[in-house]
Simulated scan of single mutants.
Amino acid sequence: MGIGTGVVLIVLGAILEFAWTGNIPYVDDDVLGTILMVAGVLTIVLVIIVNAQRSRTKNVQETRYRGQ
């Protein structure tokens, strides 16, 4: 998952929360929209945290030669 996935979740949640006038059986549309928006925000936050941790790590490559 990336930042794009979080943005898509936020957009879908906002559509269900504010613009959708239909009715999905057995599901409250407003609650589903809120859940999707919160999931999108959490996804973006987690991606930023993981990327920040990756940038702090160092990869060291050690090459050893046999002396002759």
Rank of each mutant, 00 (worst) to 15 (best):
Q53T: 02
L9V: 03
G22P: 11
V11W: 12
R66F: 13
A52T: 00
A14R: 10
N23T: 14
G4V: 01
V41E: 03
V7Y: 06
W20L: 06
F18V: 08
G2Y: 00
T34R: 10
I48R: 01
G2H: 00
A39T: 13
G33Q: 09
V41L: 11
N51P: 02
G4Y: 02
D29N: 15
P25Q: 04
Q61L: 09
G13T: 06
A14P: 06
T34Y: 13
A52L: 02
K58R: 13
D30G: 12
Q61F: 06
V11T: 12
I3E: 03
V27C: 06
L42F: 13
V41Q: 03
I3N: 02
R56T: 03
L12C: 12
L46E: 12
R54N: 01
I48S: 01
G2V: 00
I24Y: 02
L16R: 10
G40M: 07
E17S: 14
D29M: 13
T21Q: 14
P25N: 05
V47W: 04
Y26R: 10
V7K: 08
K58M: 09
P25K: 04
P25H: 04
I24G: 03
R66T: 11
G6K: 05
G4R: 01
E17K: 15
V27I: 15
L9A: 09
I48K: 01
N59L: 07
A19Y: 15
V50W: 00
V31D: 04
L9Y: 07
L42A: 12
N23Q: 13
D29W: 15
G6E: 09
K58Q: 10
V7P: 03
G13S: 05
M37F: 13
R64I: 07
A52P: 02
G13M: 07
E62H: 05
I48V: 10
R56L: 09
P25S: 05
L32S: 06
F18W: 11
N59M: 03
D29E: 15
I49W: 06
E62R: 06
I24L: 05
T43M: 04
K58I: 08
T43N: 05
G4L: 04
V8W: 04
Y65P: 04
G13V: 05
S55W: 03
G13D: 07
Q61H: 09
A19S: 14
D29F: 14
N23C: 11
L12A: 10
R54H: 00
I15D: 10
A52H: 00
V38Q: 14
E17M: 13
M37R: 15
V7C: 03
Y26M: 12
G2I: 00
I3S: 02
L46F: 12
L46I: 13
M1L: 07
T34D: 11
G67I: 06
I48H: 01
L32R: 05
W20V: 10
W20F: 15
T43D: 02
V60A: 13
M37S: 15
L12K: 08
L32V: 10
A14D: 11
I15P: 10
Q53H: 07
I48W: 01
A14I: 09
V47Y: 06
G2D: 00
L32Y: 08
V11S: 11
G2F: 00
K58A: 07
Q68S: 11
I15E: 12
R54V: 00
L32Q: 05
V11D: 09
G4I: 01
G67S: 04
A14Q: 11
A52C: 02
I49C: 06
Q61D: 11
V8G: 03
